[in-house]
Amino acid sequence: MTELSNVADSDLRGIRDLDIDDVLAYVHRDLKRLPDYTELYKRYLRQRWDVYELDFSQDIVDWREGMSQEERDAFVGISAGFHHGERQVEVELPVFMLGGSEESKIYMSSQIEDEARHTVFFDRFYREVVGMPGDSVQEVLDASFEHVSETFVGPFGLLAYQADELRKDPEDPAARVRYGTTYFLWIEGVLALSVMKITLTYCRERGFLPGYYTGFTATCRDEARHVQFGMRFLRDSVQEDPRLLLQIHETLRTILAINGATSRRLALESLGWTPEEVRRLMIRQLHMKLVDVGIALPPDIQDMVARIEPELAGG
């Protein structure tokens, strides 16, 4: 387990040498135990990193000289859903902080800061490495928008509208659980971790983009806290009121119903992945969370899970 304590304690320099599989193992190691919100907040204070410390100079060389046009297109296409996804999860999170215990609110302040930092990470990557034009964060987002799939609005528009719903009553337990299912279980626990595995494995195997690798691996370690918070929240909510399990189910039914629409072909093969492998990766990510947290699914949702389609975005 030395690798996992390395994951927990590395600074940015050390993160560069971590393997994404160890970081994913670190996400799941604590899911059975589920640390409390104060423990997660303390961990945040130790693990916080400075996004302006990342050095993209080798990435610029790799991007221009090492990678093929096909690889660049695939990479931009897959990362655009994350660039916009980070922004979306950042701006939709403050409303969730308005409810819950004081410990939850304190922890939430750290996740809001994480998501803002992740947005800056992608802003820097698109600006400095990909060379997207724009003076402001919004202008760079607008420049990368054409690469975002039409189906992005499914899960991320849903989150925006659920945040609006929550704003009407931030303490409504059912609305919080529905929102938490979309945000922590699906967007973070399934979509984000899958894209991290795909793009980081590519960087590591090809030896490309060390700045991106470092920042995105650090982002993945932050994701461990986010997913553990989220699963703790869902588990505690259902333990307190078992009827809330139905809210998780209803939300999953909607998410899985909209998952089947694919509007663009994803050039996964140029990053070394087949659609079938991505499907299996997503299903595994979902199962690991559900099993560890003890969320049982009725047969109709199990059928929908078995038919999950590759979907590349995250936050």
């Binding site: 499914g154 719903e165 909209i258």
Partner: peptide, 21 residues
């Protein structure tokens, strides 16, 4: 929708998203 320029003022959010595209 993403930027909430267009908002759902009334109606069930999950039912609305079942047909989002």
């Amino acid at each position: 929708v993403m930027y909430r320029g267009l908002r759902l003022e009334r109606g069930d959010v999950l039912a609305f998203f079942r047909v989002i595209y």
